[in-house]
Amino acid sequence: MNNVKAIVLRAAGINCDTETEYALNLAGANAQRIHINQIIEKQTILDGFHIMVFPGGFSYGDDVAAGKILANQIIHHLAEAIRKFIADGKLVLGICNGFQVLTKMGILPGDDSTTPAYQNDVTITCNDSGIFEDRWVYLAPQTKRCLFIDPDKQIYMPIAHGEGKVVAKDDDTLQALIDNDHIAFKYVDEDGNEGGYPINPNGSIASIAGLTDTTGRVLGLMPHPERHIHNTQHPRWTRLKTKGQPDGMTIFKNAVNYIKNNF
């Protein structure tokens, strides 16, 4: 099918919705920004969409903890609708605050048949630096399962967050994340090697920058793909003068193409 419809969630404090909508449209989707109140009022709205994006921002001010209040609201009003959305074979993308929300809801890393749920085992917390930082990072894909990702392509995009450190309850949980192929991206340097700050900008365990669920149809990541969809967004574009497809577009294009091929 060609009419790929994407919903970009709005809520108090979400602030990357406009550029995310633009990126989806640029990738060939027909995207719409819709307020959470409207979805709660009429949950069937979701039926008309193929891709649901939780964009970046500071939902409800990140009060209590980043993404927590919005996650709580969704758990109590929309959990079933979203589970159904995923079960229907559709796609969910969480960027930055959206990733925090998906994690705090337990959608990511999600249920494994072997482990009941990670909701209480994996979280995203304050950067080791203790402050918000905006900087560009290299991301190395870690899985072939996640359909948003080109598994062989290292990509470059910015992070902008104060709470982006992915942590697991214990070593066993981390091992399960690795064994069950939940790690979508790791922070690396230009040559693909893991390292300390600032290569890993927030101190995430195992340099985790993004997670996927068991289906590979849900992706959450701290960096912002919608901020690298034009070559002039690259911090060194005046040096490189590259003409190819900007790295952030791969995520949106892969999503759109998946729907085109599967629906």
Binding site: D134, R227, R239
Partner: peptide, 23 residues
């Protein structure tokens, strides 16, 4: 100071406050 500000939200960034080979 500069890195504590989100200078790229809204997606319109062309010349950033920090630039060069190492940004």
């Amino acid at each position: 100071v500069i890195r504590q500000y989100d200078h790229e939200v809204q997606g319109g960034s062309v010349v950033k406050p920090l630039t060069g080979e190492k940004n």
